[in-house]
């Protein structure tokens, strides 16, 4: 009997062909006030455990900073949320209904998760304007994209974001010709164009001058509330200037969580950052 059941399970059409799996609802449901659930996630690369039973929850509208020494698994965690890396174990839910582990990268982007990479990657051959246009929330399937024309509302939205990131004067410049800081902002602008519920921002102020840093802090703070923002950053001054809540990652799992002051006084954190040996 059991073999028969196994056989039947193996022969289920919707299990054999992944494209026959019924599409899950892609409407974000934040009825419990939590936008992201990562539970018991582990990833191993060649025997090296990059993420180790990680549990992390992000609330709606929250601005969360994630810190941790090199190799703590910060970037890998972002890779998992955005679908670039598949975990060995664990679950990742976006709101109450969306299982991130069953979606591809573009699908994850389209349900409302945007990401800014550590190394700024803008489309260098395109003008600033075109970069924003490409990132804009729209029907991104092939045929609609071929026929797409900008509506006045969309133009307005682009101008608005251009103003937010302060690149009005560069709108027709090639993105490759921008300065490092400007590229970072353009990337944040592209994130905004996607109008995501959750923004993942990887090291936004690396290589920025102090003034640029201040402007970025201001920008990120203004985004919180409307969006949930997760910032990974090394620069402690910057983190202190923006964070409500800080999570410390160490060796692939959460070491401590709380306000900046709580975390700074946590003996385990001090051990990891100052104590030297593991």
């Amino acid at each position: 009997m059991k073999t028969l059941d196994n056989l039947r399970a193996a022969m289920r059409r919707d299990q054999v062909w992944d494209f026959m799996v019924p599409r899950q609802a892609l409407e974000l449901d934040m009825s419990h006030g939590t936008i992201l659930y990562l539970e018991d996630i582990s990833v191993t690369f060649d025997g090296f455990r990059a993420i180790n039973h990680l549990n992390l929850y992000i609330d709606a509208g929250e601005l969360r900073c994630i810190i941790g020494p090199n190799g703590a698994g910060k970037t890998t965690m972002m890779d998992i949320i955005t679908g670039k890396t598949r975990p060995d174990t664990g679950t990742a839910w976006f709101g109450q209904t969306i299982d991130l582990l069953r979606l591809s990268e573009p699908e994850i982007a389209s349900v409302g998760i945007g990401r800014k990479f550590q190394k700024p990657t803008v489309f260098e051959q395109h003008a600033v304007l075109e970069n924003l246009e490409l990132a804009m929330a729209a029907d991104k399937r092939v045929w609609p994209t071929l026929l797409a024309r900008l509506t006045p509302e969309q133009r307005e939205r682009i101008d608005e974001v251009l103003e937010t990131i302060g690149l009005q004067d560069q709108r027709d410049q090639r993105a490759g010709a921008l300065s490092h800081g400007q590229k970072q902002w353009l990337e944040i602008g592209m994130l905004l164009m996607q109008n995501p519920y959750l923004l993942l921002v990887d090291e936004p102020v690396a290589g920025m001058t102090h003034q640029e840093m201040d402007r970025t802090a201001e920008l990120l703070r203004s985004l919180a509330g409307k969006h949930s923002v997760v910032v990974v950053e090394h620069d402690m001054d910057f983190v202190r200037s923006i964070a409500d809540k800080v999570t410390v990652l160490h060796q692939g799992s959460v070491l401590a969580e709380g306000s900046m002051d709580e975390v700074r006084n946590d003996p385990r954190v001090i051990e990891v950052y100052l104590g030297g040996g593991p």
Partner: peptide, 19 residues
Amino acid sequence: RVAVAIRDAESRTRFIGYR
């Protein structure tokens, strides 16, 4: 423009939602 974006930064294009 999406095509050129794919040519220059394929995975980035994927992350802003293009198939």
